[in-house]
């Protein structure tokens, strides 16, 4: 859905966090990004969702230059962010999180009804009247993803969606993401290591201190090698 070319983003004027990043999200599939802490994964996802303004480069959406779009415009076009750190609304209940979002009509997207979301995340069904801040970490993560899915995304940006989840719940979340392309939605997911990415997709991008690699095969060790090379480059004493 999106094409990114030579994107440079930073939080301060002359200190870029991402440098000339290129990424092609045309294929309706799961695209994964792995990289060490602080590499800029969240920064990239926030930029694509319109929360950060790039200093250079272009983001295209179906031939349209959307580099400087605002978050609500990105959301209306079908880009949904499930942010790291959950970012729920503490004073809204679980049910309200899902009813305040409206699936966008008049455009394609992978529509999920509230009932369907509760089927996918049964843990939330028993918590409908709890507030955002009364949920366990795993429940918060599920609600973050459910909220994003309820906007009927065409591109789901999932930032470390399995962080802090018990293995069974993590598998459940992974399974949901995996099914999205069949429903017409593209997924861009960031994950902490190649193994987690390999469970989801065969092609991953490696992000190391602001530089994004070409897509590489997850299973044949290429991605691992890229990460290791980066580690030894930046920290020669690492074993």
């Amino acid at each position: 859905m999106l094409q990114v070319s030579d994107l440079t983003v930073g939080y301060h004027r002359d200190d870029a966090v991402l440098r000339e990043v290129c990424l092609d999200l045309t294929a309706v599939a799961v695209h994964a990004i792995v990289g060490p802490n602080g590499a800029g994964k969240s920064t990239l996802l926030h930029t694509l969702a319109g929360h950060l303004r790039p200093t250079a480069g272009t983001v295209w959406c179906e031939g349209r230059d959307v580099t400087r779009w605002r978050p609500h415009q990105a959301a209306r076009t079908g880009v949904a962010l499930a942010p790291q750190g959950r970012r729920l609304w503490p004073s809204l209940t679980v049910a309200e999180h899902l009813t305040v979002t409206r699936p966008a009509r008049h455009r394609p997207g992978s529509t999920f009804s509230v009932d369907e979301l509760l089927e996918v995340f049964p843990a939330l069904a028993g918590r409908l009247h709890h507030h955002g801040h009364q949920l366990s970490g795993g429940e918060q993560q599920m609600l973050t993803i459910a909220r994003a899915l309820h906007t009927a995304p065409r591109l789901l940006l999932a930032d470390e969606p399995t962080e802090g989840l018990a293995p069974t719940v993590a598998r459940q979340v992974t399974a949901v993401l995996q099914q999205l392309p069949q429903r017409g939605a593209t997924v861009l997911v960031t994950l902490p290591h190649v193994r987690a990415a390999a469970a989801l997709t065969d092609t991953v991008h490696v992000l190391t201190t602001g530089h994004l690699s070409h897509p590489v095969t997850a299973s044949d060790g290429q991605a691992e090698r890229l990460l290791r090379d980066h580690l030894t480059l930046t920290n020669p004493h690492a074993e």
Partner: peptide
Amino acid sequence: RLIRATVDDRAMVAGIG
């Protein structure tokens, strides 16, 4: 609900369009 959500976290309100 939108008003209460905006008080809590306005960026996420933008995130739902």
